[in-house]
């Protein structure tokens, strides 16, 4: 503990090697150390295919690390924690369920589906602007709306950690900006610690308390940026000098700018 901040998650020398058939082993992540403070929004920023998604999967307990320790709330983890919420690259909704039933899916698995859960699902859907679409099937929604529903599904069981894997990468620029603001709103309401994987510099700087910039494969933390711009942040922020300064720093770490 440092002051009033409390460490939520610590990664120590995390390494991931994929052993491939008829090929040399692939080092996806090498010696990653970082600390995530409770309630923080941290972006993992890096080029496509650098191993950020693998790191997120390790945090989610879906892929075991080859080496190093992952400690969450002081405990070593080696499997999935049911109180994490995940948003994937694609909305990944079940076409046979209505939007509401998709959102309630985690509650069903955790055997917590009841009137309260239903009420919470309806509230979340309203929060993301999907009021009136509860009974609709996912294939009748646009990509952006599907991703909103998938966000509700990740939040329904009040996760202590929200893991997001390039969730807005497939959306158009305007929808993506809208979703960024929505995410910040949601975070203000839920206070969930969030790890956000992205390859967009602007998105990372706009959303985060902390940006971890990764090098190309094997992924290593090249730079840590603390974005000390107070929340709430508004879209105009993107055009300020202070914001551009952070973008330049992140760009430099990625080798895009000097």
């Amino acid at each position: 503990m440092v002051g009033d901040t409390c460490s939520f998650c610590e990664l120590e020398n995390v390494r991931k090697v994929f052993h491939r058939k008829n090929d040399e082993p692939l080092v996806a992540i090498d010696d990653v150390c970082c600390e995530i403070i409770e309630g923080e929004l941290v972006s993992l920023l890096g080029p496509s295919g650098c191993g950020k998604t693998t790191l997120l999967r390790i945090l989610a307990g879906l892929t075991p690390a080859s080496d190093g320790t992952v400690r969450i709330r002081g405990k070593d983890i080696n499997g999935p924690e049911p109180d994490f919420g995940i948003v994937f690259q694609t909305p990944n909704l079940m076409p046979w369920r209505t939007v509401l039933d998709n959102v309630l899916f985690p509650m069903e698995i955790l055997k917590l589906k009841n009137g309260d859960a239903r009420k919470r699902a309806l509230d979340l859907l309203e929060l993301v602007g999907l009021k009136g679409f509860e009974k609709v099937r996912p294939n009748q929604l646009s990509g952006g709306m599907q991703q909103r529903a998938s966000l509700c599904r990740a939040l329904i069981h009040k996760p202590s950690l929200l893991l997001m894997d390039e969730p807005f990468g497939a959306l158009d620029e305007l929808t993506r900006m809208e979703m960024n603001d929505l995410l910040l709103d949601i975070r203000r309401v839920t206070n969930a610690t969030t790890v956000f994987v992205t390859h967009s510099i602007t998105e990372a700087v706009y959303l985060s308390d902390q940006v971890l910039v990764f090098s190309t494969r094997p992924a290593r933390v090249a730079t840590r940026l603390r974005i000390d711009i107070p929340y709430p942040r508004s879209p105009e922020l993107r055009y300020t000098e202070q914001f551009n300064k952070f973008e330049k720093l992140a760009g430099a770490a990625l080798g895009v700018t000097r």
Partner: peptide, 12 residues
Amino acid sequence: PQELLDLAVSLR
């Protein structure tokens, strides 16, 4: 779809 399986596994 693998992601649906991942979702289920993540919820144990």
